[in-house]
Simulated scan of single mutants.
Amino acid sequence: MKRNLKKYSKFLSYILRHRPDELGLEMSRSGWVSVPALLEGLAERDGSWSREVLEQVVRENDKQRFEFDDTGHLIRARQGHTVDVDLGYDPTEPPELLYHGTVPKFLDAIVAEGLEPKERHHVHLSHDIKTAMQVGNRRGKPVILVIEAREMWDDGHEFFCTPNDVWLVESVPPEYLRVDSSI
């Protein structure tokens, strides 16, 4: 099971963030789907899913991307959706600096245009350089961007912090970011 956790997590992310309809799931406005309906859809597609497997994927996901509600009957992804959701996070004052990991091929466009969420609802930022490096490392040698988050907040930009410590913002205009050349 250990070697398949990544595969299970990726598929669960795909369903809960982008394509709940692929398993015939009804998603609430706040991103929740029924666990029994999810398990039924998963079992029809791949008989290796069970409640125990689902709980292990949620519990052991390295980035804690998923959460059950208090009853355990609903599940959702904490961020990263392309489907229309309102996760209900309250605006939260950010620390002075936040970070974003990317790769060199995107750097010129980001410096010129800023960070945009593309098909997602928000830009994802990290509270530390180590996490931003891990994010950027997924696509090659990382480049770390430093975001002047407190200045953005003071200028009226709203930030949200998810329960798994991912900072969300609608976009980051170029004047609030710089490349960390110390890495």
Rank of each mutant, 00 (worst) to 15 (best):
Q56A: 08
L97W: 14
P142G: 03
I183P: 03
G140E: 13
P36R: 02
K63N: 06
T131Q: 12
S171H: 04
G140L: 13
K7E: 11
K7G: 02
G114A: 05
H81R: 04
L115P: 01
V111M: 15
Y14V: 00
R65D: 07
E40R: 15
H157L: 07
Y99M: 13
R45T: 14
Y89I: 01
T102D: 06
E113R: 15
S28A: 14
K10D: 11
G101M: 09
K118M: 12
A77D: 09
R45C: 08
L38S: 01
A132W: 07
W153N: 01
L115C: 04
E96S: 12
H127G: 10
A43H: 06
R78S: 07
D69E: 03
P173Q: 02
L177C: 03
S171A: 03
A109F: 08
G47E: 15
I75H: 03
H124Q: 08
V123K: 09
D155G: 02
G41Q: 08
N137L: 14
D155E: 09
G41K: 06
Y8E: 10
F160N: 05
D90I: 00
K118T: 12
A43W: 01
V123G: 09
G24R: 06
D46F: 08
P117G: 07
M152G: 01
R76T: 06
E93H: 09
R19Q: 14
C161K: 12
E113S: 14
V83D: 00
I75P: 01
E148M: 07
N61Y: 04
R29F: 12
D154M: 11
E170L: 03
M133G: 04
V123Q: 08
N61R: 03
R120W: 10
T82N: 02
D108C: 07
S181G: 14
M27L: 06
K118L: 14
V58Y: 05
G72I: 05
E26N: 04
L107V: 15
P174Y: 05
G101R: 04
T131V: 13
G140D: 10
V135I: 07
A77Q: 06
Y8R: 11
L87P: 12
R3W: 12
E55I: 05
G88N: 07
E93F: 08
G101I: 10
W153R: 04
N4I: 08
R138D: 07
P20S: 07
S34F: 11
Q134C: 01
V33L: 12
K6N: 10
